[in-house]
Amino acid sequence: ALAWLLGRPAVSSLVIGARSKAQLKDNIAAASLALSFDERARLDAVSRPPVLYPYWHQQLTAKGRFGPADLVLDRSDV
């Protein structure tokens, strides 16, 4: 989870909490863990929140008129 979060575009740092030396070592090791494209894509897909109204409605009725800012919310390929 930490390795995935570190690779997210808006995340610049993480706060970790460990109760033992082993947990601390595991948390620190996440910084050097490299996830494959497929692993990252699968994690992105299962963690994606649902599109809220009115955005899901716009996808159904106005998709041809989406501008660059609207395309951030376009999940029609999912």
Rank of each mutant, 00 (worst) to 15 (best):
R19F: 02
S36N: 08
A1K: 11
L24H: 11
V72G: 05
R48T: 13
Q23S: 09
G64C: 09
L73A: 12
D77T: 08
P68K: 13
R75M: 00
L33M: 09
L71E: 15
A69S: 13
A30H: 11
L60E: 10
G7H: 11
V46H: 09
A31Q: 14
A31P: 03
I28P: 02
V15R: 10
D74F: 01
R75T: 07
G7N: 11
D26V: 08
L5T: 05
R75S: 08
A18M: 04
K21G: 07
L14F: 01
A30V: 12
P9R: 10
H57R: 14
A34S: 15
W56S: 05
A62V: 00
A69L: 12
V46A: 12
A41S: 14
P49K: 06
V46Q: 14
S20K: 06
F37M: 14
S32F: 04
A18K: 03
D26W: 03
Q59S: 08
S32C: 02
L73E: 10
R8P: 00
L71Q: 13
R48N: 10
A10H: 10
P9W: 00
A1F: 10
P9Q: 05
A3I: 09
L33K: 14
S47W: 03
L24W: 07
V78S: 06
R48D: 10
A31V: 14
S20T: 15
P49Y: 04
D77L: 10
I16E: 01
S32Y: 02
Q59L: 14
Y53Q: 08
N27A: 15
A62F: 07
D77S: 12
R65Y: 08
K25H: 12
L2V: 06
A69C: 07
A34P: 04
L60G: 01
S47L: 11
P50D: 08
L6K: 04
T61E: 01
D77E: 10
L52C: 05
W4N: 05
D74Y: 05
R19I: 02
A18S: 13
A18V: 01
R40I: 10
S13A: 14
V51P: 00
S20R: 06
T61H: 09
L60R: 12
W4F: 15
K21M: 11
L71F: 02
V15Q: 11
R65W: 07
F37K: 15
P49Q: 05
L60F: 00
A69H: 07
L33P: 03
E39W: 01
F37Q: 15
P49G: 05
G17V: 03
R75A: 08
K25A: 13
H57V: 05
L52N: 08
S12D: 04
R40Q: 14
T61Y: 08
L2E: 10
L24G: 09
S47Y: 10
F37N: 15
A41C: 06
W56P: 00
S13N: 09
Q23K: 08
P49C: 06
V15A: 09
D77I: 01
N27G: 07
L60S: 04
A41G: 00
D26F: 08
A22K: 14
S76M: 04
A62L: 11
L6T: 03
L43Q: 11
A31L: 15
